[in-house]
């Protein structure tokens, strides 16, 4: 699979850009968090395309963003559980 470039993304509509990025990010995220990969990818796609491109090339950046996303997700689920318990 050829690397995704800024020019490839620039020629596509925003929604399509995110989809292209998601297709590349998902397998990398799935390797870290198989069960939460779909949710984490969805969260990370809210980030700017330029930053996502950087994350594709930098496993460290991706890893730290994934950790951040998991923390946010777990906090979100905890809040939901607390609201349901009321």
């Amino acid at each position: 699979q050829e690397p995704l470039t800024v020019s490839m993304l620039a020629s596509a509509p925003l929604q399509e850009q995110k989809h292209m990025l998601g297709e590349r990010l998902f397998p990398l995220i799935e390797a870290i968090h198989p069960t939460l990969a779909a949710k984490i990818t969805g969260m990370l796609l809210e980030i700017d395309a330029s930053e996502l491109l950087h994350m594709l090339e930098s496993p460290e950046s991706l890893g730290s963003k994934v950790d951040e996303a998991v923390a946010v997700l777990q906090a979100h689920y905890a809040e939901e559980a607390a609201q349901k318990a009321k």
Partner: peptide, 26 residues
């Protein structure tokens, strides 16, 4: 919106066109 955050975040699945937040809040 009106409590639809229960489905947040939207899920990305390979091969499925990405619609972002529209996936969960049509």
């Amino acid at each position: 919106s009106n409590g639809s955050s229960i489905n947040w975040p939207p899920e990305f699945h390979p091969g499925v066109p990405w619609k972002g937040l529209q996936n969960i809040d049509p």
